[in-house]
Computed example of a mutant assay.
Amino acid sequence: MRPGDATVVSVLEVGGTHATAASVDIETRSLRFGRSFRERLDGDGSAEDILSALVRCAARLPTRGAGRWAVALPGPFDYERGIGRYEGVGKFDALRGFDLRVALTASLPGATTVSFWNDADAFVLGEWWAGAARGHRSVAGITLGTGVGSCFLRDGRILRHGPGIPPEGRVHALRYADKPLEETVSRRALRRAYARATGTSPPDVREIARRARHGDRAAASVFAEAFSALGGVLGPLLAAFEPTVLVVGGAIAGAWDLVAEPLRAGLTEADPVRNRRIAITPAHQPDQAPLLGAACLATACGEPRGRISPL
């Protein structure tokens, strides 16, 4: 290990369609080489296929990896043991019961330790550490994509319980209109709502957003109803938790012009006084935040590890 490498963590972010690798410099809170490296990944593939994609992605880093590797990926996953718990979630079923820690420790360049972290936690912590939530003591964050990820922070510590915090800090476990929240707010839910409204085969969310911007009333209504509902669900929680900022990331946050207004309206309707004080912002580092946050978690951001509460 070269001088200075003690401050470097190699990171993998794992999504349903891709993996991203980067080297994170803890001292500068930035990516070494100024960029990350992406590889296609099939979340429906075999465990061997998924592992091969991760190893290929890691191999694209320009230098041999630091001894510490941090991996950010969605649940359900046993983050302490490094074993998948996926079943019926639409991706990574092949990793159910698979010991990813053993496999990656044997395969990643220079790996001596491999830690695993929830991707929504990593995203929100990354935005607190080096993005939109920097300087805020009390932070709530959500990710919008195949589902709704969430994380609640106070003074850089991830909280799982307390006033305004849903069970285990996971908003996706909440319900709206007697159904799981993700039946209303998710990629599949937006597409399904558009298909019902138009009687046509639904395009992807990006195309629905484009149509909304060009005057398609059904498309605009799909966004308005979904994110007003999300605001209504989050509203009582945030009124109790009292964050000073709500950071929103994930692929659907790319349609911020269609998300922000109904989300704010739902929050304000739930509690017009307290929720009006909350700054609502898209991520400043939408691509880098999960990588930075995973590195931060792997090193407890330079603080005693006890600052990060366990899952």
Rank of each mutant, 00 (worst) to 15 (best):
A70V: 13
A70C: 11
V71E: 10
V71N: 12
L73R: 08
P74H: 10
G75D: 04
G75Q: 04
P76Y: 10
F77S: 03
D78H: 01
Y79K: 04
E80N: 14
R81G: 13
G82F: 01
G82Y: 03
G82W: 01
I83S: 01
G84S: 03
G88M: 09
G88Q: 07
G88I: 11
V89P: 13
K91T: 02
F98L: 03
D99M: 07
L100A: 08
R101T: 01
R101G: 00
V102N: 13
V102R: 15
A103Q: 10
A103G: 05
L104Q: 01
T105A: 14
A106V: 02
A106E: 15
S107W: 01
P109L: 12
G110I: 09
G110A: 12
G110K: 06
T113W: 01
V114A: 06
V114D: 05
S115H: 11
S115L: 05
N118I: 11
D119G: 07
A120M: 08
F123E: 07
L125T: 14
G126Q: 11
E127A: 07
W128K: 08
W128E: 14
W128G: 13
G131H: 08
G131S: 07
G131C: 07
A132N: 10
A133T: 14
R134C: 13
G135Q: 07
